[in-house]
């Protein structure tokens, strides 16, 4: 197991290096620079700024310096927000985004799995149809429209939740729901179809022939096997929630990391773009590793390569 994780960590570093390199060069190719604004800066000042941030050096030196800094977990100063470093931005914004993301993942998985199980157990009856209509709506309605709907009805019309901002738990409900709706719908459909597949398996008939009750069969024999595809989906789900929160954070005025990311791209704030990209990549790579490890624990047939071979 340790050997497997070690091997995976090496691969993760390799992927990370490729991501850093690609982002670094793509960003430079994009036209414009951090100091371009309506008001043309005098050339001396621009030269000074470039010198201050090291932008006057040849690209390979800049690249090398950047790699060294990342290894030391220093993402450098922001070009736009004077007196703030990228590390500051991440430290401020990430806890907010993390909380929002966790809430959304929780809603998506809990409600999605529940809907899927109900739909499968009541296959081709009204609970199934209801759950699947909810799922189709969830998948087809984009999160930003869902967000506006929720704001209009639940916040403005009914006044149950606050419209925007990030102050209390109540403030987090609407953005989390808006963020969760699409993945929740996807998980509901995934769970339903994999439940139906498992229910048609011979071992369910075996379980029935043992005299086990329907409840025991569902809990002990069906759900665990049906959830394997859902666990696989957790990796892409994390990615989806991360990118989805860029939009949602803007709509609800939440001071998370996603909002910084979007602004920084418009500003060509090189260090912020780089820093946030690297940070998100690490997050994603770690979550994929966790999913793989979880998969190996839930499904005994999967032996993690490099782990001990079936004795």
């Amino acid at each position: 197991m340790a050997k497997y994780i070690g091997k995976r960590l090496v691969y993760m570093l390799l992927s990370l290096w490729m991501i850093v390199t690609a982002t670094f060069f793509f960003m430079r190719i994009a036209p414009g620079n951090p100091f371009a604004s309506e008001k043309k800066l005098p050339p001396e000042i621009e030269a000074n700024l470039n010198a201050h941030f090291g932008l006057d050096k040849p690209w390979y030196e800049q690249y090398w310096e950047y790699l060294v800094r990342i290894v030391n977990w220093d993402f450098g100063p922001s070009f736009k927000y004077k007196s703030q470093t990228v590390n500051d931005l991440i430290n401020e914004g990430f806890p907010v985004s993390f909380l929002l993301g966790m809430e959304a993942i929780f809603i998506a998985v809990a409600v999605g799995v529940l809907l899927g199980i109900i739909a499968a157990l009541k296959h081709n009856r009204w609970p199934d149809y209801t759950a699947m209509i909810v799922a189709v709506l969830g998948i087809s309605v984009p999160s930003f429209i869902m967000a506006s709907f929720l704001q209009y009805f639940l916040a403005i019309k009914m006044g149950i939740f606050p419209v925007a901002r990030w102050e209390s738990f109540m403030h987090s409900v609407l953005p989390a729901v808006a963020l969760a709706s699409a993945p929740m719908a996807f998980i509901a459909r995934l769970t339903r179809s994999s439940m139906l597949e498992v229910l048609a398996n011979d071992y369910i008939k075996t379980a029935k022939s043992k005299g086990l009750s329907r409840g025991v069969i569902t809990v002990k024999h069906t759900i665990r096997n049906a959830l394997l595809p859902v666990v696989t989906y957790m990796g892409p789900l994390t990615a989806g929630i991360l990118t989805g929160s860029f939009v949602i954070e803007r709509i609800f005025g939440i001071p998370g990391l996603g909002a910084h990311f979007v602004t920084s791209i418009n500003n060509r704030d090189y260090t912020v773009i780089m820093g946030v990209t690297v940070f998100y990549s690490i997050l994603l790579l770690v979550s994929i590793l966790l999913v793989d490890i979880a998969y190996g624990i839930i499904d005994p047939r999967i032996k993690l390569a490099g782990g001990k071979k079936g004795e």
Partner: peptide, 14 residues
Amino acid sequence: MIFQDPMTSLNPTM
């Protein structure tokens, strides 16, 4: 009852 295919009649995750 014993079923035809022992490959599929046991629960793989139990």
